[in-house]
Design a binder for these strands. Structure first.
Lengths: 229, 229
DNA sequence: CCGGTTCGTGTCATGGTGACGGGAAGCTAG
DNA sequence: CTAGCTTCCCGTCACCATGACACGAACCGG
């Protein structure tokens, strides 16, 4: 039994993305203990002996943030293994992104847990300082999300169970940072077999002419992809 | 300092893909020691304390297989963290794929190291039994490679420094398991700015009319993507 | 009733793709 | 030298997806 002595802790960190007023936000938690005490950091925790990283991420998400099971899309982004990325000990971190329609107020803005939904743009340009290498992780997660929006139907994970085409378009615009033509977008997404299933209901929550309400279909892959403007 | 006791070894496993007579092969090594003694497994090793997983994969590749530095494309595929995936101890494995034009005979088929280039199809259908969860890893790596061929120019990593359009097409056909129309493929790849740079030289190594020789250009992303047949 | 807003469809030019014909340029056998 | 084979590379055509834009439909408020 010749094992190298390179033991490490395994951790799962989650970038919880959501939209607040058509702006992309990420859920951050103010650290109560050193290192990086008082700074923002991603929610996460160590992988326990009986579980794998994906299960750990799911546990952290439901328990630490109160986001109900089944109402989010959780996806692996990247692994971070550089020695010294945690000043205490060697920690290999598995970064996930979670796309949610809404973060319960108990998680963000609750006074017990010091958490907040902060603009992703602010984190990436340094306006919002974050601890560890979490700024890198958030940047990678955003880039990953941008790619996935091009090639899959996960954009609907940002939307409530029933949503309009315009709400879906706002997801693309917020994540990509572009403006999309409403009419071409409508033609594209409604033309994809199994992406949007009409419910028959309509809503006027955005004013103007009532908009058709859709729920997500079976399709997961977009082929040909959506193109960023 | 409240660390959970979930310590793990970090390992890097590499799926070295190459083409032998228009067939996709993967480099496997026969295990000399338990567990899975005598079975095939991916080359790899533990991540040492001073390096990250990517460096570990690069070291293993150059030292264990003798593939010269700079002649391969190395890319992260996925992480495997299930408890019990190594029967001895908890091991988190970072899987990489390496695309190489040619594997030196010292690595594959050499009598010292018991290694071989085996057909990927045989591994996936169970004809070639492999240890650990490496069959899953090879399947994931293949799927990853297929996706990357659609959206990036890495197919050229399977080719020697100077190659013909037909040689590049054979890469796509071997990895995707399809037949592509030679003329449409030629129009597509030569039309992409920065993918293929003409050298001015020609070759007749495939018989028939001499084929133009190209080297890779600066482009890395294919947009619009290549479509599998 | 009328203007403002948003939703949904329709049109048109352009460019990429799939399917195919055919000529160019090398080799080899007779 | 020529015929026949191979492989490369150019071209044509129909079709589909995209980008850009016009216009009518449907609801709201004054």
């Amino acid at each position: 039994m010749t094992f190298y002595p390179s033991l490490a802790n395994l951790a799962a960190d989650i970038a919880v993305f959501t939209l607040v007023e058509a702006e992309l936000r990420v859920l951050l938690i103010r650290r109560a203990n050193p290192p990086f005490q008082g700074m923002w950091a991603l929610p996460g925790g160590f992988v326990e002996p009986h579980e794998d990283a994906h299960s750990a991420a799911r546990h952290e998400l439901t328990e630490e943030t109160g986001i109900p099971e089944g109402s989010f899309h959780l996806e692996f982004v990247a692994a971070y293994t550089a020695p010294g990325r945690d000043p205490r000990n060697r920690v290999a971190s598995f970064a996930y992104m979670a796309l949610v329609p809404q973060v319960p107020p108990t998680a963000a803005g609750g006074d017990a847990a010091d958490a907040a939904l902060l603009p992703v743009a602010g984190v990436l340009d340094g306006t919002v300082p974050v601890g560890f290498d979490h700024r890198t992780i958030i940047g990678d997660a955003l880039e990953h999300a941008r790619d996935r929006l091009e090639n899959t139907t996960i954009a609907a994970a940002f939307c409530p169970p029933e949503f309009t085409v315009t709400e879906l378009r706002r997801v693309y615009e917020a994540v990509w940072g572009t403006r999309l033509d409403m009419r071409n977008f409508h033609r594209k997404v409604t033309g994809i077999e199994g992406f949007l299933e009409p419910t028959g209901r309509k809503t006027t929550r955005d004013g103007g002419r009532p908009a058709e309400l859709y729920r997500t279909g079976e399709a997961t892959r977009l082929r040909p992809p959506m193109y960023r403007g």
